[in-house]
Design a protein around this nucleic acid. Sequence first.
DNA 1: GCTTGATCCTGTAGTGGCTACAGGATTTAT
DNA 2: ATAAATCCTGTAGCCACTACAGGATCAAGC
Lengths: 129, 129
Amino acid sequence: MIAIGEAARQSGVGIETIRYYEREGIVPRPARAANNRRLYSAQDVGRLRFLKRCRDLGFSLGDAKALLDLSEGGAADCAEVSALAKGHMDSVRRKIAELQRLEAALGELTANCAEGSVDCPMLGRLRMA
Amino acid sequence: MIAIGEAARQSGVGIETIRYYEREGIVPRPARAANNRRLYSAQDVGRLRFLKRCRDLGFSLGDAKALLDLSEGGAADCAEVSALAKGHMDSVRRKIAELQRLEAALGELTANCAEGSVDCPMLGRLRMA
DNA sequence: GCTTGATCCTGTAGTGGCTACAGGATTTAT
DNA sequence: ATAAATCCTGTAGCCACTACAGGATCAAGC
């Protein structure tokens, strides 16, 4: 059993974030030492690492918790998992498309905006009626 | 001079958002009618539309305000504008790259996760030590 | 035993950029 | 006269943390 700082080091999840996850009920309350300090087991650290991986993959905290629950609950239902993952992939793809649209629009907008023009063409276009 | 609802309609910025912009000092305080209701000029609506365009292009509210200030302040300094825009484009490109990395990682993770496997391979990989 | 510094605790507030009320006043249309 | 729309101020909620304040405890060195 290790203290919260060590759990943070081993899992990659920040100390304050670990306490936040506990407050929010994302992870169960850990054991406590006689001095009231939190004590984490290897399984606790595993949960935190799992959550970290999900968050790094862009899953919302809610989805990450859902995946964690699926992972803990005996029958790891592949269908539910892949539904969540597919939904997330769709939203990632939508975001990519949106950003590419933005990139193109910004490119157009700044195209004539290099020389020290007195009346900046980009501002002009942003002002357009 | 029009009321806030009409200004919202003409600019595409929501009523609550307009009041928020005012509170935050993004736009100047508008005129007031005798009954204390806000009154917007065509120029006010132009500012709101300008901000809306910037936000739609993904600029932060701070950057949007900076662009608005540049646009208002006589000498529309093209260099400053294009520096802001280029910085933003860079961050958009970084976000795209990051999301594409995510998309690939998600694709790999879910690759074997279609059949009704008892031990979902995606969860297994998320659990990996 | 004493000091120093690291670590831990609880609780609260701030971030960005809105959005959604509550609770009331006024205006406009019927 | 009444109903519905619009407006006002002020506050709280959203996401997922992050950053304190103010204190308690612990470990290491002297």
